[in-house]
Design a protein around this nucleic acid. Sequence first.
DNA 1: ATTATTTATGCAATCGATTGCACAAACTAA
DNA 2: TTAGTTTGTGCAATCGATTGCATAAATAAT
Lengths: 343, 343
Amino acid sequence: MENLKKTTIHDIAEKLNVTASTVSRALNGNPRISENTRKAVLKTARELNYEPNQIASALRSGRTQLIGMLVPNINRAFFSSIIRGVEEVANSLNYRVIVSQSNEVFDNEENAVKAFLNARVDGIIASIGKNTQHFDHYQQVLERGLPLVLFDRTTPSLQTSQVVIDDYQGAYLATSHLIEQGCSKIVHFTTERKIAIYKERYRGYTNALEDHGIQMDETLVFSGNLQLEDGRSHTKSLMENNKDFDAIFSASDYAAMGAMQVLKENGLKIPEDVALIGFLNEPFTSFTDPPLTSVNQFPIEMGHTAAHLFFNALNSGKKKVVPKKTVLQPELIVRGSSLKRKL
Amino acid sequence: MENLKKTTIHDIAEKLNVTASTVSRALNGNPRISENTRKAVLKTARELNYEPNQIASALRSGRTQLIGMLVPNINRAFFSSIIRGVEEVANSLNYRVIVSQSNEVFDNEENAVKAFLNARVDGIIASIGKNTQHFDHYQQVLERGLPLVLFDRTTPSLQTSQVVIDDYQGAYLATSHLIEQGCSKIVHFTTERKIAIYKERYRGYTNALEDHGIQMDETLVFSGNLQLEDGRSHTKSLMENNKDFDAIFSASDYAAMGAMQVLKENGLKIPEDVALIGFLNEPFTSFTDPPLTSVNQFPIEMGHTAAHLFFNALNSGKKKVVPKKTVLQPELIVRGSSLKRKL
DNA sequence: ATTATTTATGCAATCGATTGCACAAACTAA
DNA sequence: TTAGTTTGTGCAATCGATTGCATAAATAAT
């Protein structure tokens, strides 16, 4: 059949009457190898169609050139864009990314991390599951001296680098924008505020109100799962109770979408009767009618940043690096759903 | 510091006064090991917190438990859902998935495949880039005896398993539905029809027209990149030329969305004046106004199928398997953009 | 010309698990 | 009892590349 036998450094060595050590060094650009030998090795390598066996290299050197990447959901635009960002940086440095998803289930998260360690990844980039309460599995990663970078969903329990966007600022911008548009009775959709990011968004919302001298009304805050259905039911409940409100700031685009549907079903005009803002800038937000104002988290850039933090930690070697926390600034993308006054 | 030194089978062996061979066999369930020894090994392994080094195992056994997965774009719902599907199956079998994206650039595709081979993946699952014309890199995969499964974007040039949906059927269903809604002057958005899937959709469109006795009008077929902007410009050109049409069947949801925007901008009612159907059932399709009728490709199921084909090929070992082609049946998801008559 | 230094390469162990073959002990059959 | 099996382990090579240490050859210093 075909030439299935792969060529190794030994084949190259034999052909050139040198040893495998020399070939290895030549290929790795070791300065102790003479220019002539190096050239000969490279030439022969090409001729024999040599391709390094990364597994063998990994075993000996301890570096697999693999990054384990853990996300709650791979098929959500926000996360897949982050993966994309990480990958762009990683691939350019000849690293590969293994992806796993937790589906927000703690056991999956734990298993994925273990599987990564068994696969001997050089480090892990992860976003924590919604229901994760303890972090031993991540702690183990750190104890092995492997780089660990957390993004978006992080925890103060772990002493490690992380990248988040300024959720507070995003919420503050959104709420302020609504106020500037003349709204004052602003509803907020959030979720049980255990996770930092939702806490921060809530804080941004309340502070913006306060800074503009608007009295906060707790009955306008709804807590749920931030899915489409939650947005729908919150809005229905607003209507049924004849609540007086002129804007909704939702911590999620999906819930905002649910609100938009119910508002339209009830003949309310957006943004004239109720202005609407979501969070995350999901791809669909520009396709709704009216297009949905949202907060862009720059997921691809977040991926880039996560990767850079990762390689920083990786290259600093054994010497402990001070964990770095990068906070990206979000951007309010103003669209029709909140723009009452033509600028 | 911490106990950084990982325990190996040698540590277990030493503690039990047996050899590493025995430990290895015990851990792998080799029947030649006595029940007692096996139990002792497992117990000690647990005590010492042993975790197998997959790299060492991979080097010796030649199996890395890694699948290379290549997609054009990871942050597109269709592809990320397929990845999700593959992953679900792979992880349950203790395989990991390395993901790379080609961004439709041939060089990237080639490099990614090479990188996979260097990483010694056990096989590859891929969707071919739009502009890929030759397939040597994939041929090499096959020549090495590695499983290769193609999904969605495939080619007859490669003798290997593949999974696609019945694009013909999807387009036929869509077009027929429009006809049943009373439309007869049906526009089609497509792309240069080199890639099988678009050819098939075109064929489904024309055959449906024919079967319903409608004369095909070539001037109603627009070829472009199927992005939002393409949909917009095609539709504008229709309007400017005062074309007589009552429906659009787009081979992509994005182009359909572009059409929807322009139609609405021109005061046309959807579906009364123009009915509209897309393809892919992107998440946003249910959020547009009116919601966009589309063709569901069942991406997660496609991922499952791809994975199953992969493991079939993998487990059949050296003996050549007959490549299998699985064709999934699509489903027309009827939404407001095409539903003229209330059912 | 002799010693010291640099340069280029080889030697051999190593990473950790797997596996074909050998072999002792225990058991069965004749 | 002796030969023939079966059962359970050990031995040692192997996968392919890396790397600390040794060393021969070439060059520089005295």
